[in-house]
Amino acid sequence: MAQGQLITPEGVRRDGRRLDELRPMELSVGVLKNANGSAYVRQGNTKILAAVYGPRSVHPRHLAYPDRARLRCRYHMAPFSVEVRKSPAPSRREVELSKVIREALSQAVMVEQFPFTAIDVFVEVLEADGSTRCAGINAASLALADAGIPMRDLVAACAVGKVEGHLVVDLTDLEDKSCEVDMPFAVMYGKRKVTLLQLDGQLSPEEFVKAVDMAMASCGKIYHMQKEALKRRHLALRRKVEGEPS
């Protein structure tokens, strides 16, 4: 794609966003009845459903850890999540992203409280339009909290990329396809502990510092939306109960 097609000289992107602006987000928890915890996250056109089961027993038994729970993640893209049908079998990319998401969450989950068990996290991509692993981490972290599994902090994630020489946050699929650099970033924001940092491409040291700052600021915004999403349902019920005359 020719230079200047994705970002105007004024710094406005295809969808009208500024460089450091997130897509409109929608977060909700408790969307699945059968799961112990669940969450739905929408970031622009990227839509993710996450479900948490457990702690439950591990089969075969020898896979269990004697001192902590086994955190298992499955990142999966629905066949209809992309324009050309994706085979539902797990691809190399999905296996890798499952590992990456598990590692980003394992620092936050207090697995040592549940030895000899497994906690299963399922991240299902319903529609993919860039930043699916970050949206997946946001959803999985909410689902874990919704399941009541003890966590040190919520994990918020956001991608930063370099498109046509500009650093931008929360890439869409179109931007992702033609970007020079893609940097997914996840952080336990309350503790400022980074749990995921991948870098695909090349950044100068100055650009890297700026990219991390942008990612951190965006994660801060997401973190507050996550907190608000977890509280919303209970506070609405509380207002309803307190409002009704007794």
Binding site: A145, P150, K227, R238
Partner: peptide
């Protein structure tokens, strides 16, 4: 008050209960 994981509740010489 309703709290969520990672929220700073208090500082100082308090004991930590469940949760």
């Amino acid at each position: 008050d309703l709290v969520v994981p990672g929220e700073l509740l208090a500082e100082g010489d308090y004991r930590a209960g469940p949760g």
